[in-house]
């Protein structure tokens, strides 16, 4: 697809659809998968809509801390 913005939107919609399909599942693996999907959506917004794909290093500066934070959220959910 030539339009990168539309492609990015389609990726986001696909991620939302997979999230909705997974949302009925319980357990630690499902929780991890839901957080990975949220991270992927955040990456798509930061990279595709906020144009960090074109800013060397800055995309990682946002998505790596977000990934670590999501790991913390998962751990807090998993220890219950």
């Amino acid at each position: 697809m030539r339009d990168r913005l539309t492609l990015n939107w389609l990726i986001l919609i696909a991620l939302v659809a997979v999230t909705a399909a997974l949302s009925t599942q319980d357990g630690r693996i499902a929780a991890a998968a839901l957080l990975v999907l949220a991270w992927a959506k955040a990456r798509a917004i930061l990279g595709g809509f906020l144009h960090l794909d074109r800013a060397p290093g800055w995309l990682a500066a946002f998505v790596v801390p977000l990934g670590l934070w999501m790991g913390l959220v998962w751990a807090l959910a998993a220890v219950r």
Partner: peptide, 11 residues
């Protein structure tokens, strides 16, 4: 997209 899973999905 960041606040949605912890609030709605991670039960």
């Amino acid at each position: 997209v960041l606040i949605l899973p912890p609030i709605y999905l991670l039960g």
